[in-house]
Amino acid sequence: MIVKNRKVKHTLRNTPRRGIKGINTLRKGIKEISHCAFFPKNRKAAEKIISIYWFAILIIIAGAVVAMVSLFYGAPYDVRSTEANIMINQVSNCLSENGKLNQKLFSEDKTFNENYNLKEECNLIFETEFKNVGGEYFLEADFYDLNNSSGKVFELSEGNFNLKADCKIAEGEKEYKRLSKCVDREFYSLGSSDNVFKIKITSAVKKTEKNVK
């Protein structure tokens, strides 16, 4: 029932009730409804409608809280960056000891050993609980001779090479959650004939099923 722009004699109590808008008290017992009033004249019926609105508000609040909590706790913890960093630490420890490159990296003629097995020498295992093709890890170590301006002199790589493409995309401004997480770090070390090398290690971890919703 809608009452519009009409003075109404009310039997409601003197003080205006909390939550009822559009009712201004003129004098005791008489109220003017300046806008559309959606409440019936009967006090009990009006209270029923208010209680329905109240329940609706409670349900909306509860729903919002449940949705937010489910979203927050439903999303898995993304530990891929940490994992990639740990992998880089492990690889750098095995490539360089006490500031000198591992002697196994060099062959007898003091050139880089092409048969150096990064996975085996650095104690790595790339098989995971996921049975998909290719693997979930990618690892690359690039060696730059600082005494020689020819740039990269040697490289080692292991794992799923397709993940390297993800690293290129991730270099952009936009962050893609479903792509592999890539971390690259570099350090300096002395070679076999005391020449300085810069070693850049790139590590990529996919594992999107367990880390991204």
Partner: peptide, 9 residues
């Protein structure tokens, strides 16, 4: 819940 590690130990 299972999660894999890469350290071959």
């Amino acid at each position: 819940y299972e999660y894999s590690f890469f350290n071959n130990v």
